[in-house]
């Protein structure tokens, strides 16, 4: 069963494709560096951080889908991957509800 699964993956991925994905990650890393040198916070506070996170999220998606073969995996694996993202989102969302409401409103004094 496991062997069949591996053979199935090899049909989709080969060395040139792995190198292609790697190059996308390298480009993402370079883009992260240059994005940090541009003052995007003048558009709205936190814009630099948002762009950096978007690039990181894109890189992570490529790693999961292709390096970790999630793209060709069965639904249970997809569920685990999406569930992990959901949990990450919980941590971000509930932490941000603190930061975004701190020092404001009825109880700010």
């Amino acid at each position: 069963m496991a062997d069949t699964h591996n053979e199935h993956d090899h049909e989709h991925m080969n060395i040139p494709k792995y190198i292609g994905i790697f190059m996308i990650l390298v480009v993402g890393t370079i883009a992260t560096y240059y994005a940090a040198t541009v003052d995007m916070d003048r558009f709205f506070p936190g814009a630099n951080t948002l762009v950096a996170l978007l690039i990181a999220f894109t890189k992570m998606t490529f790693v999961m889908l292709f390096f970790m073969h999630v793209y060709w995996s069965k639904r249970l694996i997809w569920l685990a991957a999406v569930g992990s993202f959901f949990w990450l989102a919980i941590m971000f969302a509930y932490t941000m509800q603190d930061y975004l409401t701190r020092g404001s409103g009825t109880f700010s004094g």
Binding site: W87, I90, Y94, Q97, D98, Y99, L100, T101, R102, G103, G105, F107
Partner: peptide, 21 residues
């Protein structure tokens, strides 16, 4: 996983976040 902020009620965390937690 949704209740961790109840350890932080007096930490300086937002009062709104405290109410949700």
């Amino acid at each position: 996983f949704l209740v961790w902020g109840h350890h932080m009620f007096v930490s300086g965390q937002s009062i709104y976040a405290g109410m949700v937690f």
